[in-house]
C-alpha cells in the first residue's frame, strides 16, 4: 500500500447533482382510455357470461374486483390488473432466487404470490447418487444450490393454491453465474417463444415472472447458462459491463414508463441509449429521452 498520495485524491472529483421538486420529470402522462372498471363496479347480469379473473358474482350480477380494462374472449369476461404478482403457467420460463432448502426440494422466490418449489427430482445433477435416500441430502443439496443463488427454470406444474413447481431438466436452465438481476412488474413481460436473447453483445434471460437476468455472453458454447459450477474467477470486461449497465438502464426506463419489456423494445431502447455515456444514464432527462425516442421508433405515441 503506497503512502498518502495527494495527487491521487485530487483526481477523484465527486459528482452529485441536487435537483428541486419543481424540476421533476414524469415518464407518464394521462391519456384517453377505453372504458375502465374499478373494484365493485357492476359489469352486467350473470346470465350467459362466464366470469374469469378479476371479477366476482354478487346477487346475480357480475362485478369487477380489480381495476382495469374489461376483456372479452367469447363468453368469458375478465379484467387484468395492470400491476400484480406473477401468475405462473405451465411452460413459462422464469428466473428465481433460492430462499430455503427443505427436504428434497428448494423453495424459490419467483415474484409470485407464493414461493415456488424446485424438487430435487426435477433437477439434472451430475451422477445419479443424489437420488438415493440419504441423510446427507441437505448438505449435498446445498453444494449445488444454496440460499441466495439464482436459477433459470421452467414451470412444470401449478398446484391448486397457486404454488408453482419448477424444473431445470434442460441444459439451458440451471444456476446463473455472474451478472445482474433486474426486476420489472410481471404484467409488462410478454409471453413469447423464446426468453433467451443476445442483444448488442450481451445476453439476457427475460423471465415471464418479471425477473430479468443480464449476463456477459459466454465465450465458448460449452459454458451454457445452465450447469451448477460456481464461476467466481471470471472477470467481466469493461466493455461488457458498460453494455450491461446500459441495458439495465433501458429496462428500468421502459418499466417506469410502463412499456412492455421484450426483445424488440429493448433493442430499440438500447440503440437510443447508445448515444449517452454510461455515467449519464441515471439522469431523469436521459431516461425521458430514451423512452420518448423508443416509443417513436416503435410507432407508439400517446
Amino acid at each position: 500500500m503506497a503512502g498518502l498520495d495527494r495527487e491521487d485524491i485530487g483526481d477523484k472529483s465527486v459528482s452529485a447533482s441536487f435537483r428541486l421538486a419543481s424540476d421533476r420529470i414524469s415518464l407518464l402522462t394521462p391519456c384517453e382510455h377505453p372504458e375502465l372498471y374499478t373494484p365493485g363496479q357492476d359489469i352486467g347480469p350473470e346470465t350467459g357470461l362466464l366470469r374469469g379473473h378479476g371479477t366476482y358474482q354478487d346477487n346475480g350480477r357480475i362485478k369487477a374486483s380489480v381495476a382495469g380494462v374489461l376483456e372479452h374472449v367469447n363468453k368469458l369476461i375478465m379484467i387484468r390488473p395492470l400491476k400484480s404478482r406473477y401468475n405462473g403457467e405451465i411452460g413459462d420460463v422464469v428466473v428465481g432466487r433460492i430462499t430455503e432448502i427443505q427436504q428434497k426440494r428448494w423453495r424459490v422466490d419467483a415474484n409470485a404470490r407464493l414461493d415456488a418449489v424446485l424438487l430435487l427430482s426435477s433437477v439434472n445433477l451430475p451422477g445419479g447418487e443424489l437420488r438415493r435416500r440419504s441423510v446427507e441430502d441437505e448438505r449435498m443439496m446445498r453444494q449445488y444450490l444454496s440460499e441466495g443463488d439464482l436459477i433459470s427454470a421452467e414451470v412444470q406444474n401449478v398446484f391448486s393454491e397457486g404454488t408453482m413447481s419448477l424444473h431445470t431438466r434442460n441444459l439451458k436452465y440451471g444456476k446463473l453465474s455472474q451478472g445482474v438481476l433486474v426486476t420489472v412488474p410481471a404484467p409488462l413481460i410478454k409471453r413469447s417463444k423464446t426468453h433467451f436473447h443476445t442483444i448488442c453483445g450481451i445476453s439476457l434471460i427475460i423471465g415471464t415472472n418479471g425477473y430479468i437476468w443480464l449476463y456477459p455472453t459466454p465465450k465458448s458454447t460449452e459454458e451454457g447458462a445452465g450447469g451448477f459450477a460456481r464461476n467466481l474467477e471470471l472477470r467481466v470486461e469493461p466493455r461488457e459491463r458498460e453494455a450491461i449497465a446500459r441495458m439495465q438502464c433501458c429496462i428500468n426506463a421502459l418499466a417506469e414508463s410502463r412499456m412492455m419489456v421484450y426483445d424488440t423494445s429493448l433493442v430499440a431502447a438500447f440503440e437510443v441509449a447508445n448515444k449517452f455515456s454510461v455515467k449519464e444514464l441515471l439522469k431523469p432527462e436521459v431516461k425521458l429521452e430514451i423512452v420518448m425516442l423508443t416509443q417513436h421508433m416503435m410507432g407508439l405515441n400517446c
Binding site: 477523484k12 472529483s13 465527486v14 459528482s15 452529485a16 447533482s17 441536487f18 435537483r19 428541486l20 421538486a21 421533476r24 458498460e242 449497465a245 446500459r246 439495465q248 438502464c249 454510461v278 455515467k279 444514464l281 441515471l282 439522469k283 431523469p284
Partner: peptide, 12 residues
Amino acid sequence: DGRSQTQYRPIE
C-alpha cells in the same frame, strides 16, 4: 448502474 466510484445517484 454505470456510475463511477465517486458518483452519487440523482438527488432531489
